[in-house]
Design a protein around this nucleic acid. Structure first.
Lengths: 140, 140
DNA sequence: GCATATATGTGTTATAATCATAAATATGAA
DNA sequence: TTCATATTTATGATTATAACACATATATGC
């Protein structure tokens, strides 16, 4: 198996593993979404949950635990770094910023995401050739 | 949680669950690919592995165990049905055919796949707006 | 007979998702 | 000033899934 955040990935620098994640069999995409949101602007767990929900990738908001655990392990791997923000109202926030390494990771993820998207396109084209635009009319 | 092949899906007929799978959080797509291939032509485990590999959805062929276990549970659910084929050379093949229920399932999957694809498009558009076509030049 | 290709399966472990809960801090209301 | 609520971070436990490894059976060609 090969998932960088859990450190079990062999041959991280092989040509087929541009970022250590591109060749995963069945990745979920919480990590790259976190990285992409952070690329735009430093943020923290609670806010990330809201922002990622807007992506409609996750019909329901991503799991709270998953967000925090991912952030921590991503920090351990060096893709992001955090500092406490005690300013502002409410409890202190742990603000995350994407690192240079994290951006490298994001580039790798982009390749993975693109491949996946193309496969889904291929699926949909074939599907539509079998059932001409069925889903337009028969949506319950 | 909601994955039909493992039978843990609550409220299968709710409006947000058109096929019992459309609202999954992070589905992998082996099942719909199997169904789509079967829609084209009856097939069996070993052949499905080859055909699905060609989809380049799975950079490496799908797990052998996953294929057979999925086929068995899909049959239990009624999406496909099988019969032994002893004709031809080599060991007997268990030939699968998609059922009417299976096609309903496939329609639901198509909605899921489309949503997922759109989210990935959204990811890629944002990504490319941050790094103008970086992956074209900096591919290692 | 024996290696090999084809074909179907099972067992186990590693990883990830999900659900439940805890705990701390500020805010506003009673 | 106490109490409920919103915000924020976090952990524990359970289940689901993926990945890897292995086992079995049948034909085919040497």
């Amino acid at each position: 198996m090969c998932h960088p955040i859990h450190g079990s990935c062999q041959e991280k620098n092989s040509p087929s593993h541009p970022c250590g994640c591109s060749e995963q069999k069945a990745p979920r995409f919480l990590q790259p979404f976190i990285l992409l949101v952070l690329k735009d602007k430093d943020s923290y767990g609670y806010e990330l949950i809201e922002k990622i929900s807007e992506f409609q990738f996750h019909h329901s908001p991503p799991d709270v635990g998953a967000i925090y655990r991912n952030l921590r392990s991503m920090e351990k791997e060096g893709w992001v770094k955090s500092k406490w923000d005690t300013k502002g109202s409410g409890p202190a926030k742990r603000i995350y910023r994407i690192t240079a390494q994290g951006e490298e990771m994001l580039h790798g993820w982009a390749i993975t995401v693109k491949k996946r998207k193309e496969a889904l396109d291929q699926f949909l084209r074939l599907y539509q050739s079998y059932y001409k635009k069925r889903e337009k009319t028969e949506r319950r």
